[in-house]
């Protein structure tokens, strides 16, 4: 009755709302936690103390180096055909503009293909991408590569429609990349509403002029830590089930949903198991990653350091898609491992959450999954998640304690049972 005991304690019992309350305390205290920022390092120190006070095993910080970029002051104004101040969010690693800003005519396109077709028009302009939202992984290409593709055809800057499934005039940020040999131009996201406004104006043949000012700056890499805590295994202590979320966030909102929820239900999983006096046969290792938003920078260094023990990792788990009411577990692994996970998820029948889906990848555990270790991620309401993702709306107000309780219960049952099975999960 272990599964039932975990579910009862998390959803109906005395641990109810604990992960929500712990998260609220942290994000209300330190706020957003951008890579390289002091608030991120403060959050790491607070978690280091929290995990020690929680009496978990082997609590320690593993040093890594991470990017340090700062947004500075930024603004964008449509000067013609009429004056209209736009809400924008510069993209991580973007360069800034000169102090006086960049004032130029706009070329609006809805795709990279259209940009190629109209390349001769782009020179000396600000390219505005009004790409339709398809899903996150498809549409995020415009945020990541928009500046490079615009620079290749001579543009001075790029403004990209926010990658979101829903907008109430909410700009969304995120990382973007430059390319060797391509001029680095400033790049920012604008709201869906402003992208569509400029698209309509352009479709009527109206000339649009925008003034963009960005104070973005990149500094040399900063020191940071991945935060680690364990429940040491009783029989195969050298074997590991890794359960994780990331502590860093963008510099908007509170980073409560992305990925405070994932980090804190992962901590809650260990707390629930400890509260019930359980100790699985394998070590259950909590890792709270740093600098995930810059492309899994902390996790990549953890992987380099620990891959020597890859044969001892039975399952790697990261929750980084929100902790609203879970609808199932995303999983990547062999068919036999998938069949076993289906049995594990059947233990969650009391919550009616038993689905095992595909695509268990998440940025910080992708290195392990790429090299054969089974991986899992929590599935929930992605439309809601991407409505708030990387925006000022990512605060405790979007979080729901009851849904977090259920998410923590799912996370705890899966991680504990796999950690306690007599054998590790089979691989291809």
């Amino acid at each position: 009755d272990v599964a039932k005991a975990i579910i009862n304690r998390a959803v109906y019992g005395e641990s109810q709302n604990r992960s929500y309350e712990r998260l609220a305390l942290l994000v209300d205290t330190v706020g957003p936690r951008l890579s390289g920022s002091k608030s991120l390092e403060k959050a790491i120190q607070i978690m280091y103390q929290n995990l020690q006070e929680n009496g978990l095993d082997n609590v320690h910080l593993e040093p890594v180096k991470i990017p340090h970029w700062e947004r500075g002051e930024e603004s964008a104004v449509i000067l013609a055909p009429r004056r209209h101040q736009m809400a924008i969010l510069g993209l991580g690693s973007s360069v800034g503009t000169p102090p006086e800003g960049i004032t130029a005519e706009v070329l609006v396109v809805t795709s990279f293909e259209e940009l190629q077709r109209r390349a001769p028009e782009a020179k000396g302009k600000i390219v505005v991408y009004n790409q339709p939202y398809v899903n996150y992984s498809t549409t995020v290409q415009y945020r990541v590569n928009g500046a490079v593709e615009a620079a290749k055809v001579g543009a001075l800057a790029s403004l990209i429609r926010s990658v979101t499934s829903f907008s109430i005039y909410s700009p969304h940020t995120g990382m973007q990349e430059y390319q060797e040999g391509v001029p680095k131009i400033p790049t920012a996201c604008i709201t869906v509403e402003d992208a569509e406004l400029m698209s309509r104006l352009a479709s009527r043949g109206i000339r649009i002029v925008v003034q963009l000012k960005m104070g973005a700056k990149t500094y040399c890499d900063a020191y940071s830590f991945n935060t680690v805590a364990e429940i040491t295994g009783s029989k195969f202590p050298e074997q590991v089930v890794l359960v994780s979320g990331h502590l860093d966030s963008w510099d908007v909102g509170q980073g409560a949903m992305d990925d405070g929820g994932g980090a804190f239900i992962s901590w809650e999983a260990l707390s629930l198991i400890k509260d019930l006096g359980l100790r699985p046969k394998r070590t259950l290792r909590l890792v709270l990653w740093t600098a995930e938003e810059q492309g899994g920078v902390g996790a990549s260094q953890y992987y380099q350091l620990h891959k020597v023990n890859i044969s001892n990792y039975s399952l790697v788990m990261e929750s980084d898609l929100g902790t609203f009411l879970p609808t199932g577990l995303r999983f990547t692994g062999s068919e036999k491992a998938r069949a076993i996970m289906k049995e594990v998820m059947s233990l969650l029948e009391p919550l009616n959450i038993t689905q095992v889906l595909s695509d268990g990848e998440a940025t910080d555990i992708s290195f392990w999954i790429r090299d054969g270790v089974p991986g899992a991620s929590l599935q929930d309401d992605l439309h809601k998640y991407f409505s708030f993702h990387h925006s000022h709306g990512d605060t405790m107000t979007v979080m729901d304690p009851k849904q977090m309780n259920v998410a923590a219960a799912v996370w705890a049952v899966v991680s504990y049972v796999v950690a306690d099975l007599e054998e590790m999960l089979p691989r291809n």
Partner: peptide, 24 residues
């Protein structure tokens, strides 16, 4: 690709199913 030490399972799927059911 790395394989885990006990990749050769000693147990049938039915045995694993029974083991997991014991957590119910």
């Amino acid at each position: 690709k790395a394989i885990n030490k006990s990749n050769i399972s000693q147990r049938t799927f039915e045995e694993i199913k029974e083991e997991i059911a014991s957590y119910r």
